[in-house]
């Protein structure tokens, strides 16, 4: 069954909460939390997080395209909610053309 956006968001927040607890991050993880500026992610972290999400949802997702789109913004960052939305868009899509 295809997971809902809320279920994906909840999973993502829970995963990031667990990870952030290992860094002694004082802030709560919300849908508005920004990965680069607030969580201090670097490019390698994004690669690993993307790999983990692909494994979890058994689906290859165009993460490079996602981050390319962010690059066109004034504020080059990505929120937890946006990431959940991105995953939602692709978990329901057939993998093979």
């Amino acid at each position: 069954m295809t997971p809902t956006r809320d279920a994906i968001l909840e999973h993502l927040q829970q995963m990031l909460r667990e990870l952030a607890s290992d860094w002694d991050l004082g802030e709560a993880i919300t849908p508005d939390t920004l990965l680069f500026s607030q969580l201090g992610f670097q490019s390698l972290d994004i690669v690993v997080l993307g790999t983990a999400l692909q494994e979890r949802y058994e689906r290859e997702m165009p993460f490079a395209e996602l981050f390319a789109n962010i690059g066109q913004r004034q504020v080059r960052d990505l929120s937890v909610g946006e990431l959940a939305e991105f995953v939602k868009e692709h978990v329901g899509v057939s993998a093979t053309p």
């Binding site: 490019s43 994004i46 490079a64 395209e65 981050f67 390319a68 789109n69 962010i70 690059g71 066109q72 080059r76």
Partner: peptide, 13 residues
């Protein structure tokens, strides 16, 4: 095109 944009983001470092 994606790589050009990634460069702008600084993702491809």
């Amino acid at each position: 095109e994606i790589m050009k944009r990634l460069r702008a983001l600084g993702y491809v470092e």
